[in-house]
């Protein structure tokens, strides 16, 4: 399949800053791809996320979505229809007084019939388990519910590409499991997704991984590749799965252990 999303030598410098936020990034995505972008705090991940959806314009290079460029103001509308960013801090995203109004906000700004809007909002409430909370204020939700709502906001707009920035940050273990399952369901339903994170655990099921450091792509390949280069991954500020970390610390070399079950069976067969 042909790529629908292309980064062509994309660079970005923050105004008044001498350092480059993002430097000469190239990428081609085919429909249905799940890409993970890994890197430490300050590696350029969030800047790249903003470049991918047109919130920032590259200072050099091009971001193309089905041929439309984020550099052209009159094409931004087409970009916004196709790419949706789920912010790291859900509170920064909410605009409406109730959960239901919040989900409806984006859909209502499309030229859709009231019946379609109603159906889409109901689908969002059900899919993200927010039906029982539809009349409360987004700001009074728990951390996990806020994350669900921020995903629902974007999902109802049916973008071709969803960008999620550290979606598991600030969540308790129960909420983490719930959101992980939900994102996996979306992905296996064919949704193209880019997941920006510093944890390799979240990236293990990705089709491909880009590692960023100092604004540049320093490595790209399948996630399993990073398991065999733990030292280097750590130096890039990537958090290894706890089981991988423990295996390396014990000196279990050349064993790509990623979870508790695998580690137990390696240690006690």
């Amino acid at each position: 399949m042909a790529p629908f999303f292309v980064l062509d030598q994309v660079s970005y410098c923050y105004p008044g800053s001498s350092t480059t936020g993002v430097c000469q990034v190239n990428l081609e995505l085919e429909p249905g791809t799940f890409l993970a972008v890994l890197g430490a705090n300050g590696s350029g991940k969030s800047t790249l996320a903003r470049l991918c959806c047109g919130l920032l314009k590259p200072t050099a290079g091009r971001v193309l979505v089905e041929g439309y460029s984020t550099a052209n103001d009159d094409e931004l509308k087409e970009i916004y229809r196709r790419v949706g960013l789920v912010f790291q801090h859900p509170d920064n995203q909410f605009v409406a007084g109730t959960v239901e109004r919040e989900i409806a906000f984006g859909v209502e700004n499309r030229t859709l019939s009231p019946a379609v809007i109603r159906r889409t909002v109901d689908e969002g409430l059900v899919r993200f388990g927010l039906e029982p909370r539809k009349n409360v204020s987004p700001h009074s939700l728990s951390g996990g519910e806020k994350r669900l709502l921020s995903l629902a906001d974007i999902w109802v707009l049916k973008p071709k590409l969803i960008l999620v920035d550290e979606p598991l940050a600030m969540l308790d273990p129960g909420a983490k499991k719930r959101i992980t399952r939900l994102l996996a369901d979306l992905r296996y339903s064919g949704q193209s997704m880019i997941w920006f994170t510093h944890g390799l655990l979240e990236a293990l099921t990705a089709d491909r991984v880009l590692v960023m450091a100092g604004g540049r792509v320093v490595w790209s390949g399948p996630p399993a590749g990073l398991l065999t280069m733990a030292e280097q991954a750590r130096a890039w500020g990537i958090t290894l799965p706890p089981a991988t970390e423990a295996a390396y610390r014990l000196g279990l070399k050349a064993t790509a252990v990623t979870n508790l079950d695998e580690l137990v069976s390696v240690l006690w067969r």
Binding site: N41, A169, M170, H198, G199, G237, T239
Partner: peptide, 10 residues
């Protein structure tokens, strides 16, 4: 919640 927003090295 002092670890919010911190990566592994942080």
């Amino acid at each position: 919640e002092p670890t919010i927003g911190l990566d592994g090295p942080g």
